[in-house]
Amino acid sequence: MQSFHLPDMSCGHCASRIGQALKELDPQCRIEFALGEHRITVQSQQPREALAQALRTAGYPPA
């Protein structure tokens, strides 16, 4: 599992966009959101850098 701190994630709409971006990369990934902590945990077969790039492209660069 990979954990990412996403300072720009603040609401359910953000979580929806993030989920959509990661599911486009890996439809089988599992995502846990901690909105209050601005953190997500992703279980995926994709490498960390690919996940980070998908997050950046969606407008939520990891810190």
Rank of each mutant, 00 (worst) to 15 (best):
S10P: 03
M9K: 01
S3H: 08
A58M: 10
A50T: 02
L25A: 10
T57I: 14
P47M: 13
E24I: 08
E32L: 15
A34N: 10
D8R: 08
Q43N: 13
C14L: 07
M9I: 10
G12D: 08
Q43G: 12
A54S: 07
A34C: 12
L35H: 04
K23V: 03
Y60S: 09
T57V: 15
I18E: 01
S10W: 04
K23Q: 10
Q28H: 13
A63F: 05
A50R: 07
T41C: 14
H5G: 12
H38R: 14
G59Y: 11
E24M: 13
M1H: 14
D8G: 03
C11A: 10
R48S: 10
E32I: 12
Q53N: 09
F33C: 04
L6F: 06
E24Q: 15
A58G: 11
I40V: 11
A63P: 06
Y60V: 11
K23G: 08
I18G: 01
A63I: 05
P47F: 13
G12Q: 07
T57Y: 11
T41M: 15
G19M: 03
S16Q: 15
P27H: 03
R30W: 08
Q2C: 06
P27D: 02
L51A: 04
L6N: 04
A52D: 08
I31P: 00
G12N: 07
A15Q: 07
H13I: 09
Y60C: 12
I40S: 00
A58V: 07
